[in-house]
């Protein structure tokens, strides 16, 4: 009797073992999958943390004293990483408060690079950039924003509301309709849409702006901030002649007390500048007012003549300089 029971128990254990073999096989498979999965994710996670641990730049820095910033470039050198070629090879100049400066030069002369250095997007390889005698690298980010506002050559088109598009220049004025409207006016962009209207194609009822209209919105964005200088990198490239002409005139009026650094291939814009800096071969080749540089008969004079020939009264004058 006891022996029979023991045999029965032995059988039950045997059956249970057989049944569980199947599930063990299945689970072993699932386990190996899970382990493999985990290993892959773990590798990815390492990339994530490696990225997070890259050195950061600090937003905080020395406060900027004085309400009248003066900018000094001291022998600034710069080369794009891994290219070797120096794009700026010892650039020096000085810009005082309220001064209007035109930065001219051939394509690839380094004009936009100067702007990027001023915005602290890159660090100079040599020399120093000073704002009120403080190295620009040490200036507090918020303070620097009060010194410069900028329209980049490849300015952005935000497919958000017009209000946001303009207010990104100075978020504290997001709900200050009067300030936003007057900035739009400065950018010659008044009346293109309601402040609340979405721009672009993200929203179904978005307003489709043309290239020139977007550019004006970008200029309005830069005008919104009460910065000491407005930096404009090719602000009139896609504007029609009347708008271009109005923008030059508008700047002269609107920027009465503010300084301006303008990059433009339309040398007409250089005529309204107090000072023209001609960048060539990585250095400032010529400096002075329009008449002064024309009289000097250098590179600037040659560029100007080439462009004005298009408009001279002599019909055969168009063509090579």
């Amino acid at each position: 009797m006891f022996g029979a029971f023991a045999e029965f128990v032995a059988f039950v254990v045997f059956a249970a073992l057989i049944i569980s073999t199947g599930s063990v096989l299945e689970n072993a498979d699932a386990l190996s999958h899970a382990v493999q999965n985990l290993r892959q994710r773990y590798l990815l996670m390492e990339h994530y943390y490696k990225f997070l641990s890259l050195p950061e730049i600090s937003e905080r820095g020395a406060p900027l004293a004085g309400a009248a910033p003066r900018i000094v470039f001291e022998n600034v050198e710069f080369a794009y990483p891994k290219t070797g070629a120096k794009i700026l090879g010892g650039v020096s100049f000085e810009i005082g408060q309220g001064e209007r400066v035109a930065l001219v030069g051939e394509n690839g002369a380094g004009k936009s690079t100067v702007v990027k250095l001023l915005c602290r997007l890159y660090k100079p390889d040599g020399g120093r950039i000073l704002v009120n005698d403080i190295d620009i690298q040490d200036v507090d980010a918020a303070d620097l924003r009060r010194v410069f506002s900028v329209v980049f050559q490849d300015f952005c088109k935000y497919e958000l509301t017009l209000r946001e598009n303009v207010a990104f220049g100075d978020l504290s004025k997001l709900h200050d309709d009067d300030a936003l409207r007057s900035a739009l006016k400065m950018g010659l962009a008044e009346g293109i849409a309601e402040l609340g209207a979405p721009c672009g194609k993200l929203e179904e009822n978005g307003v489709d702006l043309s290239g020139g209209q977007w550019q004006r919105v970008a200029v309005a964005r830069a005008c919104l901030a009460d910065s000491a200088f407005v930096i404009l990198d090719e602000p009139t490239a896609s504007l029609d002649p009347v708008a271009e002409s109005n923008m030059y005139r508008g700047f002269a009026e609107v920027l009465k007390n503010r300084g301006c650094i303008m990059i433009s291939h339309r040398l007409a814009s250089a005529r309204m500048a107090d000072k023209i800096l001609v960048l060539r071969d990585g250095v400032v080749a010529e400096t002075g007012g329009h008449d002064e540089l024309i009289a000097a008969g250098g590179f600037y004079a040659r560029m100007y003549r080439s462009q004005s020939a298009w408009y001279s009264s002599n019909p055969e004058g168009g063509g090579a300089a």
Partner: peptide, 17 residues
């Protein structure tokens, strides 16, 4: 379509001619 909007004056004249 606006082939020379970003070109410097010397090159613009040259390219267009």
């Amino acid at each position: 379509d606006e082939p020379t909007s970003a070109l410097d004056p010397l090159i613009e004249t040259e390219i267009l001619s």
